[in-house]
Amino acid sequence: MDRLLFGDNQFFGINHMSEEKARAQAMKFQDLSAIIETLDAAYDEGIRTFMCTTHDRVALICDHVRANPGRYEGFKFYPCMPYAHKYANAVTDYGMIGAVTHFMPDEGLLKTAIKGGMSLARKDVEGLATILVDMEMKMFRGLETPVVFLQNVVVDLLLGMGMKDSFRIFHDYVREKYDAEPGFITMNLPMLLDTLDELGIENPIVCANINKIGFRLSGGVEGYLETLKKRRVRAIAMSVFASGAIPAKEAIDWIAAQEGIESIVFGASSRKNIRDTKMLTDAAYAA
């Protein structure tokens, strides 16, 4: 994995600090051209990986990259699925069962069985999970997707419920079907790593909040650092600036000094911020 990965929160009005800022970003990136311009700036600054949700608008970005292969040589997508809001809204609309069938492609036997309230066999549940992965992956057809992530809301929901097998199902399917490395995003890093370890998933790619002030590091900074030290893990740090609460240089220098962190995912809306982050990171890791 590259040292720096470009995230997509800023494109979709997600800002953990302020709703006003989130709205300003939603306005700024209303047109696809503004998103593409920023992605181009990231590419020109040497960033080659776009870690993105499966938001409907990402499909448009994919179309653009597919249409301009010369402009994006070596450009990779790290899809993060599912786009949780899509499903959460569907659950409100159709109920739990309705939501699942809503996203299933056609009137197959499985869909009919679920709608009929039939009890599901183990292979049915696995089949269902893989159908949902395929639906989310459709938009990336023909593009490079070397790592495919399960989003944190889903990972952490399953983790808390103790539905451990689902991680194994996702892991195996992503490897087999997409020849990609499975990744897991979480807000509960130590607990997830214990669980993956139990499942025999070795040296996993995980992405979690990791920052100097311990913002949204469940259980606290010490537990995180200890876990990163003691386990074989390929960690991606997100929220390294804690939504701007930590000055950029201080934040990145601190990350560079920790063990077990392979990459940083960051979001930025301007070329200047992208360049600054790139320079700070290069400097921190050269030191």
Binding site: H16, M17, S18, V153, D156, L157, G160, M187, N188, M191, I213, G214, F215, R216, L217, S218, G219, G220, A242, S243, A245
Partner: peptide, 17 residues
């Protein structure tokens, strides 16, 4: 003041402290 300063970390995080 922002949530980074106002939230206490929790044992387990799902959608919000």
């Amino acid at each position: 003041k922002y949530t980074t300063e106002l939230s206490e970390p929790v044992r387990f995080y799902l959608r919000g402290e």
